[in-house]
């Protein structure tokens, strides 16, 4: 282990191994929550680990859903039928989506994979929590010492590969075409490697264990199917046109002051009296009657 980790990582690993084994000795039932990156949780029953989960490793539901063994709608249906259980094992078997033995294997694989992800990452601290229930426990629990040693052995094995890879470090890109045949998993990994995804991200994408995918990524890097960019891609920062940055709007212009008193009307101000006044030279009604009177005489 000494060559795989720096001093800080070693301290974190020792802390985790010590805490987990203490849970085993105390025949603890409950959860050991591990903070760190990715961190996670171990669920124990009478000192044996019956489940482990971590953001760093796909859970059993991801392993089933991402490999198209069951589609998301049917899964949601089964979850409803089992009163919202996150792992509807009995319904999966009853409907023929998976065999009981197959589900047990998936759960054991997910447990060991989560333990590997936690051990391979950074451990900041461990805390016992009582009263929580794992959603996909295995029937026969794993002794904590064996689980941690197994995870550490896997990490050491990764470090001895020609191109050692960590689950959350390298973000590989497809290399130049080699013309050599690829396995099904390699083809999938090649299709999803975009220089942004780590081995852990690829494991979630293809629905395979993070250890399996990390080993495969290491092999593909060594064989030239994948390559690593020296620096991560630049994040394009765009700015909206005309506006230098998002900022609070300038205060709107002051509205014109509202008049406090009504304007006083002045006679003749509109000029209407002049417009209607009789013209001096034109005929008026008076002239008209006078003319008529003269004609009658």
């Amino acid at each position: 282990m000494a060559d795989v980790r720096d001093a800080l990582g070693r301290v974190g690993y020792d802390r985790l191994a010590h805490a987990l084994m203490a849970c085993g000795h105390a025949e603890f039932t409950g959860e050991l929550r591990v903070s760190g990156r990715p961190g996670g949780a171990f669920h124990l029953r009478d000192g044996l680990v019956v489940a482990a989960e971590s953001p760093g490793a796909p859970g059993p539901d991801v392993l089933l859903l991402r490999t198209d063994r069951i589609d998301a709608e049917r899964w949601a249906e089964l979850v409803r039928e089992s009163d919202g259980a996150r792992w509807p094992a009995a319904e999966l078997v009853a409907r023929g989506y998976a065999g009981a033995a197959q589900l047990r294997v998936v759960c054991v694989m997910a447990l060991q994979d989560a333990a590997f992800a936690i051990v391979a990452g950074r451990v900041d601290g461990c805390e016992r929590v009582a009263g929580t229930e794992p959603h996909a426990p295995v029937a026969v629990g794993e002794p904590p010492a064996r689980l941690v040693q197994d995870a550490a052995r896997k990490l050491a094995a990764l470090a001895t590969l020609p191109y050692p890879v960590r689950p959350d470090r390298e973000r590989p890109l497809p290399g130049a075409p080699t013309g050599r045949p690829l396995t099904e998993l390699q083809q999938e990994l090649l299709a999803h490697a975009d220089g942004r995804r780590t081995a852990r991200d690829l494991a979630f994408r293809v629905g395979r264990g993070v250890y399996t995918v990390t080993v495969e990524v290491a092999r593909m890097l060594a064989e030239g199917f994948l390559e690593c960019a020296p620096t991560p891609a630049e994040i394009p920062v765009r700015l909206p046109p005309e506006v230098g940055a998002v900022r609070h709007r300038e205060p709107p212009p002051e509205p014109p002051p509202a008049p406090t008193v009504l304007p006083r009307r002045e006679p003749g101000a509109s000029g209407i009296t002049e417009a209607l006044a009789p013209s001096k030279h034109g005929t008026s009604w008076r002239g008209f009657f006078r003319l008529r009177h003269q004609a009658a005489e």
Binding site: D194, R196, I235, P236, V237, R238, L239, P240, V246
Partner: peptide, 14 residues
């Protein structure tokens, strides 16, 4: 993005 939906920066897959 700005609140009106104009993109400012993105770190997104293709």
């Amino acid at each position: 993005a700005a609140a009106d939906g104009l993109l400012i920066a993105s770190d997104t897959a293709e």
